[in-house]
Write a protein that binds this DNA or RNA. Structure first.
Length: 316
DNA sequence: TCCCAGGTCCTAC
DNA sequence: GTAGGACCTGGG
């Protein structure tokens, strides 16, 4: 992979596949501009980027002189989890025909290291929503409360709102974006983050369980609307706790279908389908280890592809 | 028009 | 500790 800024080009390592990486449900701010060439455009922090198989190009950035993103190359390397070597990750998994097939189908999918604030709010927005709706809500939030970066043919790119932007927003303003009942959750978290009571960046230094306990509402009381699923997504997609194994309806179906043998005490599939989140997630972390979150993403993509085929739509 | 969505909260038992 | 209902709203 190369990084291009104002004509300058820098290389990053392959394998990397933009479609699988941006369309696997870990981020909601990318859109394809040329699927044949696998070219995507998205907003990351203060930047608008165009990304293809082996090239990252800086399209524009905010005029904010206090651009908090720092060195652009380092910023991009961190975002694309430069430290993660996919071949090492693949070979760390136990022998597993289903996972091997899932990896082959989505070879080059990489887990990003996103901004934890944006990631947490995005997954709060995801509660009881499908992916197209989540994208719409996040776009509306950015249009209404973010800062304009550059005009393009499809309107403008906007930064994701800052915690203070959402803490100041009224109920009416928030509801106009289509977030529905989630507005209380978002405003509550925005207030905690902007006051400094909840420091998301500091969670990077904690181990998985400590960081998780800081995020889950009923434990920490510093969030509201954050259950185990939203916490695990935030840990995996922004704080780079790669052992996190988020369980949604599709992963639950996947586990019931392919991993029922792991739950020997459970006699039938109905019982396994109703296993508690914690029991299922812990078992999968124990099986797949340090990179369980990568295994989860490939499984999710496999289920998604299967659904698209059933519905007669070609995989992205 | 109706169902359902990458869940969480709250209440009741 | 857990089962079940309520929750805004838009996409399919």
């Amino acid at each position: 992979m190369q990084i291009e800024t104002s004509g300058a080009v820098t290389s990053l390592e392959l394998p990397f596949n933009p479609s699988f990486t941006f369309d696997c449900g870990q981020t909601f701010r990318w859109r394809p501009v040329d699927l044949d060439r696998n070219v995507w455009v998205g907003t990351v922090g203060e930047y608008v980027l165009e990304v293809s198989q082996n090239n990252v190009k800086l399209i524009s950035q905010t005029r904010d002189k206090n651009n908090a993103s720092g060195n652009f190359i380092e910023f991009v390397q961190k975002y694309f989890s430069h430290c993660d070597k996919l071949e090492e990750i693949y070979s760390s998994f136990p022998e597993d025909p289903f996972l091997e097939d899932a990896i082959n189908r989505s070879y080059g999918l990489k887990i990003l290291t996103q901004d934890p604030w944006e990631c947490l709010i995005s997954f709060v927005c995801s509660i009881n929503k499908n992916i197209p709706s989540i994208k719409t809500i996040i776009r509306n939030l950015s249009l209404r409360f973010g800062r304009a970066i550059v005009k393009d043919s499809d309107g403008r790119f906007h930064t994701f709102p800052r915690p203070t932007d959402l803490a100041r927003a009224t109920e009416k303003e928030l509801l106009e974006t289509g977030i529905g009942f989630r507005w209380r959750y978002i405003k509550f978290i925005a207030e905690k983050v902007s006051s400094g009571e909840l420091d998301l960046e500091s969670l990077r230094a904690l181990d998985f369980n400590q960081a998780r306990n800081h995020l889950i509402s009923r434990i920490s009381r510093k969030t509201f609307g954050v259950g185990p699923k939203v916490a695990d997504c935030t840990l995996l997609f922004s704080l780079h706790k790669t052992e996190a194994f988020p369980i949604d309806v599709w992963i639950r179906r996947c586990v019931v279908k392919n991993y029922s043998n792991l739950f020997v005490s459970q006699s039938n599939q109905t019982k396994i389908a109703h296993l508690t989140y914690e029991k299922m997630s812990t078992s999968m972390r124990e099986r797949f280890g340090k990179y369980a979150g990568y295994a989860q993403q490939y499984m999710y993509m496999s289920m998604l592809t299967e659904r698209r085929i059933i519905r007669g739509k070609a995989p992205a």
